[in-house]
């Protein structure tokens, strides 16, 4: 593994499969009476969160703790960050405290790149602005492989396999979505065929250079999808004229029970959370057996364990 995980593009196909295989291996820990491995004992992982995200922070925290790492949570609130300390000074402070890895969530695209230039330890991007969120893409890929494969629930039979030919449709605010950017890169690296569906206002400029296709018509794509991934719609987009109203958005791009019926029988529905029930996803869809939303959360912990394990030098030791 590389020293940092900042973009899903940092991962080769082999490395990405290795993360998924390692996660599958580690998933068995969750079934043990004592869910803890000694692998990262004595190592320090800092969660540096400039944005509120209990979901992602606790996922990384649980992952690090299950590997016996020491975890320091450093949030913008209640720290010197709120007093205007620069990212660089915060980085140097954490470095001086002896952090082995910094997991960073930041509102500015590229903040993890900058951080990586100022510290000697590893940097893991836990979401930067509208850029990327690579561990979300890894947990999504893991979930897809787990659910669409034929093996047992821990996916042991899929070891070594990628996502060749799996058709994934990502729906919603692509323009501002770090989840979409990372998924397009990672899923295409793994051989999946990715389609983006959104109103034209929420499709990035020059998207034609991305390894995916683009459609404005959700209904036309659903029948051809093995996976449909719904993205959260931010309410502030409405005031910026990206679409006329939240109701119109929901009618044209929301996934309700009627639309879900257009999916092939085996297809799954994903959402990175938190959901706006009744906007991009109807409650009966979110709660249906097709939904992997809860599984994604559980898989988030194991995939992040795999990333920490591989990046902090756990590789080589037996599990």
């Amino acid at each position: 593994m590389k020293r940092h995980l900042i973009s899903a593009a940092d991962l080769s196909r082999e490395e990405a499969v290795l993360v998924l295989d390692t996660a599958a291996e580690l998933a068995s820990v969750a079934g043990r009476p004592i869910r803890k491995l000694p692998t990262l004992r004595g190592r320090t992982v800092v969660n540096l969160f400039y944005e509120d995200s209990t979901r992602t922070r606790t996922s990384f925290e649980a992952a690090a703790k299950r590997l016996s790492a020491d975890v320091i949570n450093f949030s913008a609130k209640g720290s010197s960050v709120a007093k205007g300390e620069s990212l660089k000074d915060t980085a140097l402070t954490l470095e001086a405290m002896g952090s082995d890895a910094i997991v960073i969530r930041h509102g500015a695209s590229g903040a993890p790149h900058r951080l990586a230039g100022w510290v000697t330890g590893s940097v893991i991007n836990a979401g930067d602005g509208t850029h990327e969120h690579p561990t979300q893409a890894l947990l999504d890929a893991f979930t897809i492989r787990q659910r669409l494969g034929s093996g047992d629930q821990h996916g042991a039979d899929q070891r070594g396999t990628a996502l060749d030919g799996v058709r994934v449709t990502i729906v919603g605010d692509i323009l501002h979505s770090r989840v979409a950017r990372s998924n397009v890169l990672l899923l295409s690296t793994l051989g999946a065929e990715v389609a983006l569906v959104a109103p034209p206002t929420l499709i990035p400029h020059a998207v034609s250079s991305w390894p995916c296709k683009v459609s404005y018509d959700l209904d036309a794509e659903l029948g051809k999808s093995d996976v449909v991934m719904m993205l959260r719609v931010q309410h502030e987009r409405m005031t910026a004229a990206y679409f006329p109203s939240i109701r119109e958005y929901s009618r044209r791009y929301g996934l309700d029970a009627g639309r879900m019926a257009l999916l092939p029988e085996h297809a799954i529905v994903m959402h990175p959370g938190p959901m706006n029930r009744g906007v991009e996803i109807a409650a009966e869809v979110a709660d249906s057996p097709r939904s992997t939303i809860v599984a994604q959360v559980a898989n988030g912990v194991t995939v992040r364990m795999a990333v920490l394990y591989l990046m902090l030098g756990g590789a080589g030791e037996s599990l």
Binding site: S109, G110, G129, T130, H131, E132, R181, H205, S209, W210
Partner: peptide, 13 residues
């Protein structure tokens, strides 16, 4: 600049 690079980097165009 709004274009391929900004879209990829997640920087407002």
């Amino acid at each position: 600049n709004e274009g391929e690079v900004a879209s990829r980097l997640g920087l407002a165009g």
